[in-house]
Design a protein around this nucleic acid. Structure first.
Lengths: 157, 157
DNA sequence: GCAGAATAGTTGCAACTGCAACCAAGTCAA
DNA sequence: TTGACTTGGTTGCAGTTGCAACTATTCTGC
């Protein structure tokens, strides 16, 4: 029998109900299933796929904007951009007004890849939502958005 | 409807609603906030904390059992166990009946650490659930569990 | 009892990541 | 203008990860 504040290690903490733990497992499980789409067929990393998806969705934007929107670390974005450019999926154009910034956009080839992956992603997402039930999926989405907003204080939408 | 499925890249895929993407962001945001607890104060990695939490919850078990329960890769578990043992948080005892397996359990020191982290985790989880609303948190938990179960076909509990 | 398959766990390697430090360009104020 | 500060982006380094290959032990069928 220990004494100080630590003898209560049989406390009520239930790892199986710890939300960060469950979130990680669910994220891992779902991302992993989809991974073969971008990795197996196009040799992309998760980060590369996400950067591409952001560009596909929002059109041309700078790396900093991608960071703000997607909450991906700037170094991850930087390296993903370099890889995507090397693969010919992405093009950068210097901003004449601000020579630090580069406007990124998908090349024709990149858009084709994005088109294929986007379709697959849509199907996969639909399958997940169907498995959960439409209403539950909506509720899940709302909850996730709340948690994401809590983590990073800046949110516009 | 397209056959080569590539020229319709302005399709309905909305990254901002892609569940794996949202799950990852939410998992990242929540895990990151809690990270200082085990990393800052005890120098542990996420995996180490999870392995410890499993041992704290279930008592002595083998590495393979931890893998099955927590869905963590065996190599991650192996390295986490080595680190925890080196830190004196964990002890391994060879199974006399099966000399491949080792029964892992927390040392007294490990249990103390687990006690502290468990309390903090409980508080953090409670804060998250309070922010979401109790009912929404329950629904979230159910949805996550479903997704996790879908990912890995074997499920017991 | 034995060859072959399965299981527990470790390790090498290559990739990915996070952090901090860094460079370059732009901004602000006096 | 000049100097301090901010911002866009890259890089070095150390740590973490995933995968495949590996050893050692146990199990299975015959």
């Amino acid at each position: 029998m220990t004494d100080d504040a630590s003898h209560d290690f049989d406390q009520q903490f239930d790892l199986g109900r710890f939300l960060p733990y469950l979130l990680n497992q669910a994220a891992e499980a779902t991302s992993r299933s989809f991974q073969e789409a971008y990795r197996g067929d196009f040799g992309m990393s998760r980060t590369q796929w996400r950067v591409m998806a952001n560009l596909g969705k929002f059109g041309a934007m700078t790396a900093a904007e991608i960071c703000r929107i997607s909450h991906i670390e700037k170094t991850k974005v930087s390296r993903a951009v370099a890889a995507l450019e090397a693969a010919g999926h992405l093009r950068r154009e210097a901003d004449p007004a601000d020579r630090r910034a580069a406007h990124l956009s998908l090349t024709e080839a990149g858009r084709r890849v994005y088109g294929q992956l986007g379709l697959r992603a849509r199907d996969y997402d639909a399958a997940l939502r169907a498995a959960l039930g439409v209403a539950e999926a909506e509720a899940l989405e709302r909850a996730l958005r709340r948690l994401i907003a809590m983590g990073s204080p800046e949110q516009s939408t």
